[in-house]
Amino acid sequence: MEKSNEQNKEMTAQESLDLISEMLNNNRRCILQNSAKHFILWGALLLVFSIVIYELLHVTRDLRWNLLWFAMPLLGFPLARLLGKNGTAVPQNVISSQLHYIWLAYCAFAVVISIVAMFEMPSCITLLLVALLGFAECSSGLLLKNWPIIIGGFILGVGGAVVAMLVRSEVQLLVFAAGGLILAATGLIVKRQYQ
């Protein structure tokens, strides 16, 4: 909508429909671009944490470095909050709210499963977390009606789980690094799609 002194003028039916359509599209684009920033942030964090923890485990062979995973939400949530404060507050629509809830649920699952794993380390934790990560990614793709994200989520979930079954020890962390890459790529796809 152009700035003008005629913003209160009467319009034809076609002009009215065009204006409604323009506003709805701009709004949707703005909201989904904002969601994309969060995909990129969490993808980058997952990638960095996976590689750093992989290196530390590889060099020291000390499993306690796995505790560093808990620093990820501690760092990620304040950063995500900062991202929201930077510039105009972008409202939530149905899609962005649902995306938010899907990833919040994933985060809750991941944290609780990781805490349980601290006491009784199950060999299938990577398999479980990566399958859930793929599921969350796939669900996001279905919500956004975006095939690359749906397929990326499926490959991440199923492929990551299979790889996690085949490889042992800290090499499994590289599955999460791939997950981080796919997550960040999702953000970039959404950002480009709604530019």
Partner: peptide, 9 residues
Amino acid sequence: SELRLAVMS
């Protein structure tokens, strides 16, 4: 009205 309709949209 253009602006009110934009706000509502």
